[in-house]
């Protein structure tokens, strides 16, 4: 088999006002077919109002092995959160 259909990632917006969310993947020969297949596979019960498809090879993903460097620096920056700052009790709604 040389002519295997490439893999596509499927993102679906379940209703307007919400973001597209990753739903899974499918195989298709081109983008148009990927949309059609995604519709049949992932939205048989009104799960979506909009679909994005992107060929899987175009996604660059971070490597969990680098999670330390990538995400740990955020852990000790408590001053980025409102609870870090003290306010007099009298102040409401801030």
């Amino acid at each position: 088999m040389k002519n295997n259909w490439p893999l596509w990632e499927v993102f679906v917006r379940s209703k307007n006002g919400l973001e597209h969310r990753h739903f899974g993947s499918i195989h298709a020969a081109d983008a148009e077919m990927a949309l059609e297949n995604a519709r049949d596979v992932y939205t048989r019960r009104n799960e979506g109002v909009s679909i994005w498809v992107v060929e899987s090879k175009h996604i660059t993903a971070s490597n969990p092995e680098n999670n330390g460097e990538l995400f740990e620096p955020a852990q000790d920056k408590v001053y980025r959160h409102p609870t870090f700052y003290t306010l007099p009790d009298e102040v409401k709604h801030m």
Binding site: M1, N3, N4, W5, A29, D30, M33
Partner: peptide
């Protein structure tokens, strides 16, 4: 198989 091949050929042509 021929359907899958034809779909790929069409995609390439487009």
């Amino acid at each position: 198989e021929w359907v899958r091949d034809a779909a790929m050929a069409y995609a390439k042509k487009q």
